[in-house]
Design a protein around this nucleic acid. Structure first.
Length: 420
RNA sequence: GGAGGGGUGGCAGAGCGGUUGAAUGCGCUUGUCUUGAAAACAAGUAUGGCGGUAACGCCAUCGCAGGUUCGAAUCCUGUCCCCUCCGCCA
């Protein structure tokens, strides 16, 4: 959520920033609602102050209220209730208006309304040739991926990994977690995957992206589309003590997405599925440091690609292509020689104070100081089925076997998936 | 699922209709004392909103939402969460 106070103070800056990402925000309506809100608060406060004074005097003087006082205070009470009722509707509309508005892009985010305007920041060394053997053929042939079984169990966009394919995924996840915790200083978290609506709203997934989320109606719990949601909720409604930031968390969890918006896209293989594993990095940081922290996280995700020996490139997304809660995003894509395309394996964003404001996460810069909103940053480190695809397609040998990156061998116990 | 108990400030814990935003203790901050520290003593120490250049003033908040009342942390209703015991269960 954007800051109402800041919008009111400088509405045109907000309008311009949102226009950059193709939005037409109802700034005028927000200003109207806010001034009505202030009027109502003032009116109610005056009546309440008066009522407090009268009641306090009666109590102090240890006497019964006079009939006139009772009559007057009843009237005051009724007036307060009426004003409060109107205030409640104003606040509700204000909330409903603000919640679907996305974060404003930072100044250094490139202009553009769609992915055509994304900028390739750098490309690693390495081959970008193609061999045409896509993972859905290769892995199926090797007996480590069973798309038909996935479909028969759960339907389209579900898959089954088997044997060394399953173990390869487990090894990748375990290895990435170990690098993040032991070398990059993250604290491992194993969070709930079913979360309350408030938590989903706090991260920015609700109310706008309801259609992409699985939900259990009976308990009103939602399945996380990414661990970001749970990690963002870790401190909601609370104040982080001085000296604690930056907080760095990492979690490996499944992610559940309906993918209605992508119907018809990436239908082959396991590039885009309803349930996938992902290792997610998340940081709570002081605002002054968030730019540097974002670059650091990009570096950490790149490092994983490097250690796996993959060819990758870093993209900076343009204003129109960054996610709802993001103020600035880098994507990391690895080369997929099987389908001759770049596969997005990580998306790393700073959400500035947008998420912190939504779910009431604050921190105290120093003892005795007043609270501030931290910045939150998130990024995949990395997304599993896609990195699995890249390992399979890049490791494919002439004889049809797959050679596994060396760093994974301690986790798999073998260095090759043999062809049948 | 059944039966009880409970949710109050950073923590512990009082208060159960009226000068209570809330005793007391702990913690924390500052000051006095001290070469320094500890101890002792003193003062301060919640969050948010509205108004104000500011000092400051007012308002709200005792899980949450309603209700009763001139007045609610205190009474009533609903709801959520936590704990104990029983049942069921990975």
């Amino acid at each position: 959520m954007l800051s109402l106070e800041q919008i009111v103070r400088d509405p045109e800056t907000f309008r311009a920033a949102l226009v950059r990402r193709g939005e037409d925000p109802p700034i005028d309506r927000i200003l109207e609602l806010d001034s009505r809100r202030k009027e109502l608060i003032q009116a109610a406060d005056i009546d309440r102050a008066n009522r407090n004074n009268v009641s306090k005097a009666i109590g102090n003087e240890k006497r019964k209220p006079t009939p006139e006082e009772i009559a007057e205070m009843r009237e005051t009470g009724d007036r307060i209730k009426a004003v409060e009722a109107e205030l409640a509707t104003v606040l509700e509309e204000l909330n409903d208006t603000l919640l679907p508005i996305p974060n404003t892009p930072l100044d250094d985010v490139p202009d553009g309304l769609d992915e055509e305007s994304n900028v390739v920041v750098r490309t690693s060394e390495g081959s970008t040739e193609s061999h045409g053997n896509a993972h859905w053929d290769v892995a199926t042939e090797l007996g480590i991926l069973d798309l038909e079984a996935g479909a028969s169990i759960s339907g389209a966009r579900f898959y089954v990994l088997k044997g060394k394919g399953a173990k390869l995924q487990r090894a990748l996840a375990a290895w990435m977690l170990d690098v993040q915790t032991e070398e990059h200083g993250y604290t491992e978290i194993d969070p709930p995957l079913l979360v309350r609506g408030e938590t989903m709203t706090g991260s920015g997934n609700l109310p706008k992206f309801k259609d992409n989320l699985y939900r259990d109606e009976e308990t009103d719990l939602w399945l996380v589309p990414t661990a970001e949601v749970a990690l963002n909720g870790l401190h909601q409604g609370r104040i982080i003590d001085p000296g604690v930031l930056p907080l760095k968390y990492v979690a490996q969890t499944p992610s559940f997405r309906k993918e209605h918006a992508s119907a018809g896209r990436d239908v082959r293989g396991i590039k885009r599925v309803h349930q996938f594993e992902k290792v997610e990095m998340f940081r709570y940081v002081e605002p002054e440091t968030s730019d540097a922290m974002l670059e650091q996280m990009v570096g950490e995700a790149e490092r994983l690609c490097q250690l796996l020996g993959l060819t990758y490139r870093v993209l900076q997304l343009c204003a129109g292509d960054i996610g709802f809660q993001s103020a600035k995003t880098y994507d990391i894509e690895v080369w997929s020689p099987g389908s001759a395309e770049w596969l997005e394996v990580s998306s790393i964003s700073t959400c500035t104070d947008f998420q912190a404001r939504r779910n009431g996460t604050r921190y105290r810069p120093e003892v005795g100081a007043s609270t501030k909103l931290p910045h939150t940053l998130n990024g995949s480190g990395l997304a599993l089925p896609r990195i699995w695809i890249a390992v399979i397609e890049n490791g494919l040998q002439e004889d049809g076997s797959i050679v596994i990156p060396e760093v994974l061998v301690p986790y798999t116990g073998w260095d090759r998936i043999e062809s049948k």
